[in-house]
Each structure stands twice: as C-alpha cells, then as structure tokens.
Design a protein around this nucleic acid. Structure first.
Lengths: 224, 224
DNA sequence: AGTGTCACATCACATAGGTTAAACACTGGT
DNA sequence: ACCAGTGTTTAACCTATGTGATGTGACACT
C-alpha cells in the first residue's frame, strides 16, 4: 500500500480537487483532511454522495470511466496522495494483496451506500441526521480505536442538507430538536452522541466496518 | 465466467431467495427473471436497494461480511446460478480476468447507486420514476442492443414506491401525470418511453454503462 | 356465474419539510 | 473595536407527498 502514497498534494478548505466530467487521471488516498463528492443538478440543487476522512481511498469507482462522474471538494485543509490510473494496472498484476484490499474497500463502500439509500429513502429528517453521525463515527473508529462518542465533525449544515436530501433550515430545526431531546449535542465543529444506543435503534444502524469475514480473500490479501 | 454458472436453482415469483442476516454462502448470477434486494425497517417500511435482471451478478458486496446485509426477493419466476463463496478465493487466484471483470462490475454498480442516491435525494416524484425507467432501460440495453423504448417492466407500484422512497399512492398519481404529458406510457407489465430525450434531460440522466474505459484493467481482463 | 384476491386508481384530509426572508452570531482581517 | 463575510437560527407561509379509506377492474378458483 505504501507505494500508493508516494506523491502528496495539499489543498485549502473549499478547494475543488476535481470537477465533474474531468478526465479520470488518478485515484487519491486521503492523508489529511475531510472531503466530499457531489453532483450538481444545474438548477442549484446538489447531492452530496460521500464524505471522506483520512485513510479513505477516493475515486476508485471512476476507474472504469473516461470521465469523472462527480466532483470532489475539500471541507478542510487537506493532503491527498494521488496515484495515477495508468500505474494501477501494473499494481494489480503484481500485487494480489492490493487488488484484494481495494476490491474489499469498494465492496464495503457499496454497502455503506445502501445504508445511506435507506436513510434518505425511508427515514425522517431527525433520523437521517442521527444516521449520518453514526456512520461517520463508525468510519472514524477504524483509524482510531479509542474514539468515544465525542469527536471532531467539520461538516456545515448546508453540506449535511445536500447529503441527506434536506434543506439547511430543516437541518437546523432537527438538530435543535435532537439537542433538546438530549440525544446529540453540537458545539462548534464537534459533536457528542449522548445516547448512542437509542440513536442506533431509531435509525436501524448497522456497523458495516465490523463483523467482517476476511476468509474469502485472505489468501489474496495476506490477511487484511 | 462459464465456470461460475455451473449450478442452477429455480424460484417462483415472490420467493425470498435469501433473508437478511442469513449466513453469506454464495453469490448468484441471474440466468432468468427479475429480482430485487431490500431492507425492512421493522415498522412495515421497506427500502428496495437494487433491481436485478438476467446477466446480473448478485451478492458480490456481501462477500466481506459474515451475514447478508439485505434480503433478496424474486419479482418473477427466476433461475439463478449460485456460486459458493469458498470457491471464489481460488477463482480470484487463478483468473485475473474474472477478478477484473467482477471488480469492474462492482465499481459500475456503485456509480449506478450514486445516481439513485441523487434521484431519491433531490428529484421530485415524477422525475424519480422517470429516472428509474431510464436506468432499467440502459441496463437492459447491455444484453439487448436492439432494445427500443418499449420493453417488459414487471415492477409493481408498491415495489417502485419502496425503491424510490415514495408511497404507492404517489406512484399512481405521478404515473398518471407522466402519461397525460405524453412522456411515458404503461400497459400491463410493459412500458414505453415516448420522449426519452426529454426524460433524460429532466432527470439529468447519465448512461453509466457507456463511455467505459477498459484500458486500466485490460491487461487483466483480456479485453472485456 | 359467483366470489375472493390483488393490483391499481381516486378522493379528502393531514403534515413534514420546503421556501423566503430576516435576524443573529461567529470568524478573521484591518 | 469595527467591519465584512459566512454560517446558523427563527418565523410565517406554502406545497408535495403521506394517510386512510373507498372504489374498480382483472384474474383465479370453485
């Protein structure tokens, strides 16, 4: 994996790393910072697709395409390690471990996506917000075992709205209610989940980064 | 690929092929019939995640998990070719072509999923319906070059509702309007898209099965 | 032919969330 | 200390979609 991180590029908060319909040139590994991918609908509406945090691999699913299918924007100052597409072929040929690892990542991402689909399709506004917090927390836990229920969360309300299929006004209203009910507390760019069990129950949350069965690919991955 | 299709199992319309939280035993290749995957929310609500048609590979993204994350149900009489999980490891080791092909499929699926997220998150009811029809059509075109704008479509309104985050009532209303506007016509279990260009524009539809760039994996796939 | 079932259509009414706009509260720069 | 810029909160009002209930037609079984 280290070979994928040779290069390094820095971005400022709010930078567009890559627009929609750019040529697909490389994937990125997030070394530092938070980012999101989104599609614009042209009339001002926007759908945010995924949030990325340090350790994430960005842009894998663009590989089969000539042009990128969404834009990539930083939320905070970020450091990315681009890895050129044309150098991936050789990597796949020589390293089954990397192939298996990336394949596994992409499958897990897909399941996370299905959860988000459920959230947007069938949960009420407050529950969608709760579900997002839980998903982000569980992602952060991978790279930080000791993460409690209180963590850094730099996603502004406008972006939460665009990720959850809501408006900033509804986000604000619903956050206030969750706060009054003593379930979640926000302060500046931090959150605290005050009753995680209750939140997980309400949103039918599943921890997708746990209960993994690595056996299917172990021989390839060399134990991931 | 042929080795993946050795076995065959038949199901009747409405059968549950696999429930949620079953043990992950195999992936399936759809030989005949239409299916969908879904999660139940417990209070009667349900989110349909994906529809599958002949030629689709089902269950790939469950591979990294011990338990299935969604149920799999048939819409019509179906024939599936199950392929056991434990036999996949060896296949990946011996055949880069199959690995690359399945990897590519899973990446494309993911992008289709992102499109559905946009649809559910940001489009109005009528446009979500239109977007679904276009997505299904473009999928059917892969295995049938000559498919026109008139095709078999066996998805009942209750299932369309659960797929699009709407209710059957809204589906019925919106279908009627689309019909009156001369955009889409339904008759029994068939549809006709009367003005595909207009529908694609309204829904910001992208053909995700086209404009593929196979170069990145060609050496592995042997030209897919 | 009669009866049950299932999918779909339609209506009257309720509501979550959208819209618009204004006020408010931080933040960083001068 | 002041200001501009950006994000958040609040309020009054509106509408798309949900709810619940009722009706209709097609098909299957007796």
């Amino acid at each position: 994996m280290a070979t994928l991180e040779e290069d390094e590029v820095e971005f400022r908060a709010g930078d567009v790393v890559r627009g929609t319909s750019d040529e697909v040139e490389s994937i990125y590994i997030v070394k530092e910072g938070w980012l999101f991918s989104a599609v614009e609908l042209g009339d001002g509406r926007r759908q945010i697709l995924e949030f990325f945090v340090p350790g994430d691999v960005v842009g894998l699913h663009d590989l089969p395409y000539e042009q990128t299918s969404y834009e990539l924007v930083t939320l905070t100052e970020s450091t990315l390690c681009p890895f050129p597409k044309e150098r991936l072929g050789p990597v796949f040929e020589t390293s089954r471990a990397v192939t298996g690892l990336l394949f596994t990542f992409s499958l897990i991402d897909h399941v996370i996506m299905l959860d988000r689909l459920k959230s947007i399709g069938r949960l009420a506004a407050k529950d969608r917000i709760a579900h997002l917090m839980l998903t982000v927390r569980s992602r952060l836990c991978i790279t930080n075992d000791e993460l409690g229920d209180h963590f850094f969360f730099p996603i502004p309300q406008a972006e939460m709205a665009d990720a959850l299929g809501l408006t900033p006004v509804t986000i604000s209203r619903s956050k206030a209610e969750l706060q009054q009910e003593g379930l979640i507390r926000w302060q500046r760019r931090e959150v605290e989940l005050l009753d995680r069990a209750a939140l997980e129950k309400r949103t039918r949350f599943d921890a997708r980064y746990q209960n993994l069965d690595t056996s299917w690919f172990t021989t390839l991955c060399g134990g991931y």
